[in-house]
């Protein structure tokens, strides 16, 4: 069926099987292969995209459900020549190894900082009535939906902390 998706500020008209996930629409039909498929069941976070500014698992949603949504993939954050500050911070802090979970980590981190900015609490927030601040524990909890089997976690946390305006995660 026909669907128009707005991805990274550009409209894409597609004729796809309704069964196509948003992730597969990008990877198989639009050449946007930056978002990765690690599990296809919302268990790893490699496919993370922003939909209307919020991070989601693009593997667990149908492309046809996203007409008129503003979708941002890793390609929409920055390019190799012109990196988003979060991407640059991942390079600087070695916040990756094999690189496969990385686009998902980067997009998730951007979405996650937006959530903290909006005052959203997390499982580790001490007093959820009053709000929250960026800390290592908050980042770790909130990024737990992004698996990294190479286990770059400590460097990812450093990269996000630095990009969030903190110099180094307090031990």
């Amino acid at each position: 069926m026909n669907v128009t998706l707005s991805i990274n500020g550009r409209d894409h008209a597609l004729d796809i099987d309704p069964r196509t996930s948003l992730l597969d629409a990008c990877r198989d039909h639009l050449g946007l292969t930056g978002s990765k498929k690690g599990c296809d069941h919302g268990q790893c976070g490699a496919c993370t995209m922003l939909v209307n500014g919020r991070r989601i698992n693009a593997c667990l949603t149908l492309a046809v459900m996203h007409e008129n949504d503003a979708i941002t993939t890793v390609e929409g954050l920055g390019t190799a020549e012109n990196l988003h500050p979060m991407q640059a911070s991942f390079v600087e802090h070695d916040g990756y190894q094999c690189g496969y979970c990385t686009p998902g980590q980067v997009v998730s981190a951007v979405g996650m900082l937006g959530e903290i900015g909006d005052g959203w609490p997390s499982h580790v927030t001490k007093d959820i009535k009053t709000g929250t601040e960026i800390s290592g524990d908050e980042i770790r909890e909130r990024m737990s939906g992004n698996l990294c089997r190479c286990s770059a976690y400590p460097n990812i946390v450093d990269a996000i902390s630095a990009a969030a305006g903190k110099t180094k995660e307090p031990a």
Binding site: T48, I56, G111, G145
Partner: peptide, 12 residues
């Protein structure tokens, strides 16, 4: 709610 799933899943 915050003890469940992940940020991405909770957003959906």
């Amino acid at each position: 709610l915050l003890a469940g799933a992940s940020g991405q899943l909770r957003n959906k």
